[in-house]
Nucleic acid binder design. Structure first.
Length: 898
RNA sequence: GCGCGAUUAGCUCAGCGGUAGAGCGCUUGCUUCACACGCAAGAAGUCACAGGUUCGAACCCUGUAUCGCGCACCA
């Protein structure tokens, strides 16, 4: 603790400070949770980033918030577990490794085979999977790294499979041939949540077909997907539609493929909207969800004309087979034109579902998949409705509730190799026949001759167990349910809702009490930041430039609860500047001699400016506790910033200088009181700021040689760190009477506002800032004597050569101003421009008259005076007095100017 | 179509019933013995629009507009 420390440099250089403190915390086990601790538990599980991930600004925001909560909890005496980890990100990771394989070895995963490919993925994971973890450490994240988890860890993976087996046993998991969202690039099914609707500009094509039984009668059909005509098996109209109802039961000839002009029945189905297009629908059961339903109702054949990769197959016929679906669209249009059937091409905008990962239109595809009927949906809704789980901001409750109300079964199988393999075994005969008879749902192989389902589970089917299955028995006993979850609203369905259901199903408890939803970080033009747009600055560059603490503080200060954030590097620069300000304020303190963190103020005679400052500090601290209570982090940052920069640096330190620099013996007790006040406030600020700027505050704490009461959860090697130091006390002025406090506050405020007014006067008259000026003060007296100390402070802050107390009004022709301490005039010995001063005073009079008029109008209003609360009325009366006085003074001044 | 946000100083955003705020940018002075990543002073706003409630509205209510997001629809 008492190591020799060099003097602080004039500018804070974060790089070394940050890495060395991070290492010391880790080496001392500061982040390692102790399940046997007696201290109350506080726990958070990290939203696991993808192993393929690199840190984005979104992660910075999200993890800084978690770190703030974790560090604040440690300071307030909790035993903290912040459990970190990553998820295996099935599609993303497999894609990355496949791409690398193609590039480096010109091979596909099929060339390697399943086992060899998976070995490659693991190899890749070991090599690159830790990147984002390393980045979180650079940010200062105080995670318990000894408990880092991965969704493919052996124990965790086993849990995932057990859950599958269990839910199957409960009848909630089933296999079925259904229409699913198919990604033709990733070659797998997707859940509904992984499909992102995007507006697409295309065409609505109209073509006509002649009714076979009624030559000369043509039906006109509107479609956006003419390439699926070859898969059509009926034409549908609404049975209530007078235009077409009589044609039901008759037929048309399908125009494509050319050589097989099949007859299609005209059917009646109420799903057809008369208003849309022509009111006639082509029915393609194999390639459209709604059409599939119609097909089921009418027993229509299903013709699948597409391959898994989105190209057309042989059933599409010559000229189409092998074409990509979008090439085929153009081709189909050409053919229809040639046949003279195309009647219209209207430009048309519609929503097309895109694959979240591959960013290509998904293809509705009929396939065998595993589905889950969600467990505990009612309980999950109730947990939030009844406030067992609280959402911040609470508007997300509605979104959550709505989703659960309309919940659909979840397609959980993925046609990938990287992931948790589905624990289902098929006997040889079932494989041959394609039936599901005789299959076994269990983790271990039933023996020779059984084949495991080749598919894996949706990554979210593993991460929905994250809140409880990352913990062993002992840890769960202490730390589950977790205290809070911090995440983005974009995964409210993917993760939050599902985790609540899993928690209820498998632990019988909610997984977390509070959920804090962050805002989404956008670029200057309002676009969401993403890898593909390349509009996200690299947080590591920002850390290199501004320091992790600067980055953290900067981003927190502009992140109001649940509101999206338009990112601007200037914001981070401000964070860095604030760090530097703190650094220099501490430097200044060190120059004044040795410091102590918790000096006893009771025996000291505190100057009024000190009482005022401590009162401001306590007020700020109370507001800060309130802000923490409902996760208003940007307010926490704002309170600390405003108090420290404004109240402490700009006013208190500057006002304290004449005392600190005084050589006179009679000032020595005031000097001691000032230094003690500085220590109280600096140590308090460092403690309160620590969760936001951990490295810098810890460095300064150590540098100042501060020590203070450790929190209840500090033991052994944890002792002595600011990280485990309690927040400052809540009431620093318990030994001072209320009268004295309010008198000190009033006189200090008056003094400061007089300083401000006089500085303004100086500037108005263009007095060079170096030039000292003599001021005359006609004291108002209602604040008591203008003390020697106040006079010294006033002189120092206004660069006065002297402040002479006078009685009566200011000398004629002297610029003067009414302040809260009295009328202050600035005799310039004939140097002033009378004309300019008259103009200044006249403008001022106009302003004051306008204000006075406003107050007068209110006070003259009978109903205002009667109905308004007493305090407000008093406030207005006071205002009236003030403006009136001011006006009087100004008028007198104007008169003396001639 | 339904729901949710946003609209306040040139920019980024606070404030959400009692005299319109911050930071940046801008103007003017300052190499003042902690800090130019700084200090001091200043200019700058019909708080999107229209109604309503209230003694009083940026704030509450009802509409409208623009932008964004989610859900549904999507032939």
């Amino acid at each position: 603790m008492s190591e020799h420390l060099p003097e602080l440099s004039t500018a804070y250089a974060p790089a070394d400070v940050e890495s060395s403190w991070y290492a010391r915390w880790c080496d001392s086990g500061c982040f390692t949770a102790d399940p046997t601790s007696q201290a109350p538990a506080y726990s958070i599980v990290i939203p696991p980033p993808n192993v393929t991930g690199i840190l984005t600004l979104g992660h910075v925001l999200n993890n800084t918030l978690q770190d703030i909560l974790a560090r604040r909890a440690r300071q307030t005496g909790h035993e903290v577990l912040w459990l970190p980890g990553t998820d295996h990100a099935g599609i993303a990771t497999q894609t990355v490794v496949e791409r690398q394989l193609r590039k480096e070895e010109k091979k596909t995963r099929h060339d390697l085979g399943r086992e060899a490919f998976l070995a490659k993925v693991w190899e890749w994971k070991e090599k690159h999977g830790g990147i984002i973890i390393g980045q979180l450490k650079k940010l200062g994240a105080s995670c318990d790294w000894s408990r880092e988890r991965f969704t493919m860890d052996e124990a965790y993976a086993r849990k995932v499979q057990e859950v599958f087996v269990d839910l199957h046993k409960k009848g909630l998991i089933y296999r079925g041939k259904r229409m699913v969202n198919w990604c033709p690039v990733s070659l797998t099914a997707l859940s509904d949540e992984e499909v992102i609707p995007k507006k697409q500009k295309g065409y609505l094509y109209h073509f006509k077909l002649e009714v076979v039984e009624a030559p000369g009668t043509w039906l006109e059909i509107a479609t956006t997907r003419p390439e699926t005509i070859m898969g059509d098996t009926a034409i549908a109209v609404n049975p209530m539609d007078q235009r077409y109802a009589h044609l039901i039961g008759q037929h048309v000839r399908r125009p494509l493929p050319l050589n097989v002009e099949a007859l299609l029945p005209i059917i009646g189905d109420e799903a057809v909207d008369f208003e849309f297009g022509t009111g006639v629908l082509k029915v393609t059961p194999a390639h459209d969800k709604a059409d599939y339903e119609i097909g089921l109702r009418h027993n229509l054949p299903v013709i699948d004309i597409m391959n898994a990769n989105g190209t057309l197959n042989d059933l599409a016929g010559e000229g189409f087979a092998g074409l990509d679906r979008f090439e085929a669209r153009m081709e189909a249009v050409e053919r229809l034109k040639e046949l003279g059937l195309l009647t219209k091409e209207d430009p048309y905008e519609n929503n097309v579902g895109f694959s979240e990962r591959a960013d290509v239109p998904v293809e509705p595809r009929l396939s065998e998949q595993w589905f889950l009927k969600y467990p505990k949906t009612l309980e999950a809704r109730d947990a939030v409705r009844k406030g067992l789980i609280r959402f911040f901001p609470d508007r997300w409750e509605k979104v959550y509730d709505h989703w659960l109300e309309n919940i659909q079964d979840w397609c959980i199988s993925r046609q990938l190799w990287w992931g948790h393999r589905i624990p289902v075994w098929y006997p040889a005969e079932s494989l041959a026949t394609g039936t599901t008879e005789g299959i076994r749902v269990q983790i271990e192989s039933p023996g020779e001759g059984w084949t495991q389902d080749p598919d894996v589970l949706d990554t979210w089917f593993s991460s929905w167990l994250w809140a409880h299955d990352t913990m062993d028995e002992a840890v769960r006993g202490k730390f589950y349910p977790t205290s809070v979850l911090v995440t983005g609203p974009d995964i409210i369905f993917f993760w939050v809702a599902r985790m609540i259901m899993a928690g209820l199903e498998y632990t019988g408890e909610i997984p977390f009490r509070d959920v804090y939803f962050t805002g989404i970080i956008r670029d200057k033009t309002g676009r969401k930041m993403s890898k593909s747009l390349g509009n996200s600055p690299d947080p590591l560059d920002l850390i290199a430039k501004y320091g992790a603490d600067g980055l953290r503080f900067g981003i927190i200060r502009v992140a109001p609860q649940g509101q999206d954030i338009k990112f601007d590097e200037k914001q981070i620069e401000e964070g860095r500047n604030f760090a530097n300000k703190l650094w220099n304020a501490v430097r200044f303190r060190e120059m004044q001699g040795p410091a102590t963190a918790s000096p006893d103020l009771t025996g000291l005679e505190l100057p009024e400016i000190a009482i005022h400052l401590l009162e401001r500090f306590d007020t700020m601290h109370a507001a800060l506790r309130g802000a923490y209570a409902d996760y208003r982090f940007h307010e926490v940052a704002g309170l600390l910033y405003d108090f420290f920069w404004g109240d402490y640096c700009d006013w208190f330190v500057e006002a304290a200088k004449p005392i600190l620099y005084s050589q006179s013996d009679e000032d020595s007790s005031a000097k001691a009181a000032i230094l003690a006040t500085m220590d109280v406030v600096l140590s308090g600020i460092l403690r309160l700021l620590h969760p936001l700027m951990p490295h810098l505050t810890e460095e300064l704490w150590r540098h100042l040689g501060y020590t203070a009461a450790a929190s209840a959860s500090a033991w052994g090697a944890r002792n002595g760190f600011l990280l485990y130091t309690q927040p400052p006390e809540e009431n620093h002025l318990s030994g001072v009477s209320h009268e004295r406090i309010s008198a000190a506050a009033a006189s200090t405020k008056a003094l400061y506002s007089a300083v401000h007014a006089v500085r303004n006067l100086r500037a108005e008259f263009k007095i060079p800032s170096k030039q000292q000026v003599r001021f005359l003060l006609a004291s108002k007296g209602d604040l008591g004597e203008f003390t020697k100390l106040q006079s010294a402070i006033f002189a120092a802050l206004t660069r006065a050569s002297a402040v002479e107390l006078i009685t009566g009004s200011a000398p004629a022709g002297t610029p003067s101003i009414l302040t809260d301490i009295g009328t202050i005039s600035m005799p310039l010995e004939g140097l002033i421009d009378l004309e300019a001063e008259r103009a200044r005073v006249t403008t001022e009079i106009a302003k004051v008259e306008a204000e006075l008029e406003k107050v007068n109008a209110k006070l003259a209003d009978q109903s205002f005076v009667e109905k308004v609360p007493a305090a407000v009325l008093e406030d207005h009366r006071l205002r009236h007095t003030k403006w009136s006085e001011k006006l009087e003074t100004l008028k007198t001044t104007l008169k003396t100017l001639g």
